[in-house]
Amino acid sequence: MTLISLSPWDLSLAALLVLLLAGLSWRLRLGVERRVLIAAARSTVQLILLGLVLKALFETTDPLLIGLLAMFMLSVAGWEVMARQKRRFRGPWGYGIGATSMFLSSFSITVLALTVVIRVEPWYQPQYLIPLLGMLLGNTMNGIAIALDSLTRQATDARARIEARLMLGANWGEAIEDIRRDALRSGLIPIVNAMATAGVVSLPGMMTGQILAGSPPMEAAKYQLLIMFMIAGGTGLGSVAAVWIGSRRLFDERQRLRLDRLVPGRGG
C-alpha cells in the first residue's frame, strides 16, 4: 500500500460538502450556516498550521519547543472546557478546575504510555507525544466538560435537596453524593459508548486515518486500542479530579452550599 497524497483540488471537492450543508441550513432556515462555515474555516486554518508546526518540530526534537506546544494545547483545552459550562465557577476556578484536571490526567497518562507502553527514545519525541496528547486532551476535555457541567447544573437545580441534607446534619460529601455520582457517570458515558461500538458500528477516526495513510490494519487496530484505553483512563481520572475539586468548591469552610460561587456561562 502506498500513500496517495491529497492535492488542494481533492480537498476543495470535499469542502464542497460543507458548502452544501451551509446552503441546506440557509434554505431550511436552521440558522447555523454562519457557524458551520466559521467552524470549517477554523479547522482548516488550525490543522494546516498544526501540520506546519509539527513538520518543523519533528526535525528539531527540542524539549522546550515541544513543551511550549503541549502547554498551548492544554491552555486552549482548558478554555474550551470553561466555555462549555452553563454555570461556571467564578474567578480563576472557572478555568483552573478544568485545566488542572486535564493536566493531571492527560499529561500523566501520555507520559506513562510513552515511557512504559510504547517506549519511545527519548520519550518526548514529538512524532509520538503530540498526536497522543492531542487525542487524549480532546477526549478528556469532552468528558470533563460534560461532568463539570452536569455537576454545577444539578447542584443549582437541587439546592433545596442538598440543603435539606445539610440541615439534617449531613456533611458536604454526603449532601452532594448522588449528584457527584451522576456527574461522573455522565462524563464517562461517551467513552464507554465509544469503546462498546468501536469497530462494529463506527470505525474510529484515528484508525481510519492510519489505514488510509497506508498502515497495515492490524497495526492500526492495535494503536487504536492503545489510544482508547488511554482515553478511558484519562477521561476517568480527569472527570474524578474535576468533579471532586468542583464539588468541594461548591461548599465553604463551614460546609455551606455556595451557589454564589457560580456565574452564568456562555455554554448550554
Binding site: 437541587a158 439546592r159 433545596a160 435537596r161 442538598i162 440543603e163 435539606a164 441534607r165 445539610l166 440541615m167 439534617l168 446534619g169 448522588d178
Partner: peptide
C-alpha cells in the same frame, strides 16, 4: 451544629 439547631425551612427538600 446543624443537628442541634433544627431548621424547618418554608420549603422542604426531599432527595
Amino acid at each position: 451544629w446543624r443537628r442541634r439547631v433544627g431548621l424547618l425551612p418554608a420549603e422542604s427538600g426531599w432527595w
